[in-house]
Design a protein around this nucleic acid. Structure first.
Length: 156
DNA sequence: GCCAACGTTGGC
DNA sequence: GCCAACGTTGGC
């Protein structure tokens, strides 16, 4: 069964507009160095899962688009790259520590700000709205997903 | 730029 | 295995 996710990205690093310009409009989600987020990608994500694309650490945090999971989890290539800031000396090619999936651009949506999302009781449990939230990948329930799709279609 | 919240590290 | 110290995240 398809699962739903929310992935955060700093637009100064990778924005939804950047996604459009990528080869195959697809990118390896490298650089995740948090075990909870890694485990989502390694153990739970499947081809075809959908994710909200969130801009964080920016002027207008919120939902900007939708992407989908492509293929399966694979070792994060940057952990072996000495020149990368995501290099991890403890990781070896035959024993990777960090795993990730690839994400493909689906659509750029209407922008929904974090401020607006906080208004809806239906979304009160969203991880991304919780105080002190730092998790860069989180689960979205089907009900939450459906509700947000309605928001995006202006039908709430 | 501030600062609360969180995950990770490392000494014991 | 505890827990204080530290570095980072990210909304405001």
């Amino acid at each position: 069964m398809r699962k739903y996710w929310l992935i955060k990205s700093e637009p100064s690093e990778l924005s939804i507009d950047d996604m459009v310009t990528l080869p195959n409009q697809t990118i390896e989600w490298f650089g995740i160095r948090n075990y909870q987020a890694r485990n989502f990608m390694l153990n739970e994500m499947q081809e075809g899962d959908l994710a909200l694309f969130w801009h964080s650490s920016c002027k207008e945090p919120g939902i900007y688009g939708i992407v989908s999971v492509v293929g399966q989890a694979h070792p994060d290539s940057h952990q072996f790259d000495v020149k990368s800031k995501y290099f991890d000396a403890k990781a070896k090619p035959d024993k990777p520590i960090w795993w990730c999936v690839d994400f493909k651009y689906i659509e750029k949506t209407k922008f929904i700000s974090i401020k607006e999302l906080r208004l809806y009781p239906e979304l009160a449990k969203l991880q991304v709205l919780k105080k002190g939230n730092r998790l860069s990948i989180s689960r979205i329930s089907e009900n939450e997903w459906v509700f947000i799709q309605k928001l995006l279609k202006n039908s709430v």
